[in-house]
Amino acid sequence: MNKASEFIILGIITVVVAIAPVMPVIHISAFITRFLIGVMIYAIMAEGWNVIGGYTGYPSFGNVVFFGLGAYVTALSMIDFHIGFLISLILAAFAGALFAVIIGIPVLRLKGHYFAIATLGIGEIMMAITLNVPFTGEGVGLSLPIASSSLLFYYTSLIALAAFIIFLKLILSGRLGYGIIAVREDEDAARMMGINTVIVKIKAFAISGFFTAIAGGIYAYWSTFIDPPTVYDPIISVKMIIMAVFGGAGTILGPVVGAFIIMFLSDFLSTHFTLLHTFFFGGLIVLTAIFLPKGLIDLFSQKKIGWNYFIKNIKKYRV
């Protein structure tokens, strides 16, 4: 990354960090607050995918399972046990991490396509189970109490996102972080070097599950109603992936940038160009996969940005 773009990015971060906490207080409309809450929830999920898909190199296509689980644990603990929102959220987070460990032990032995589709299948199984067991309200869904103010969601998601980014930054500069990246680059070599790759992968998956479940919990209380087809929708998994990849998978800020830009474009198109919005996600995914497989962050860290960058990308991967 060159000096100028590093400086610009640092500048943007400083401004965001300074302004974000006071945004809702200095007025701004309810619409923007709502929009930002959505962005932050998706940013947490995209970052959650990034840990396992971007850094560890295990592209999960079923991360929505943690989102759904987090939403249901939060909802059930608030409705059935009358536990407060924040404690429920913490319970949900640990449930997400635990579930990641349980499914991770068999599934993380698979590689490539097989891992991707196995996670997709687990998402579908969880949806089917939730639809059929009595205490989850089956297909009817669950209604949560209505919160007094949307500021609660703004600050919870802001704190969760900030905590996630700081946590990730710390992890990545430590032993686990090097282990994770070693697994992505060459798993066999990593094992030869004495890294316990199984533990490393499971830890990464658990981190992913932990934070994605928090996003699910915030979403559940925020939307006040959840049902299995909404919170286990496989499209949500794909949205996480496209946000992370569009921004830059395997970078800390990429998924956050991706979440913001994609949510903004999606919102803008749906209000102004309804027909175009219909084709937005599909088109964006196709274009990103062909032209920007390494994401925006990689594009802006080039010394020179021009057509050559895209042509080079295509030439590299075509047959």
């Binding site: 592209p59 794909v238 990849v245 990103t288 590299k316």
Partner: peptide
Amino acid sequence: NFVIRAKMFITLLLTFGLDIL
């Protein structure tokens, strides 16, 4: 054909995009 040699999940993502489209 343009992405066939990219990482495997890029082709998965691409075909999912085509599906939505």
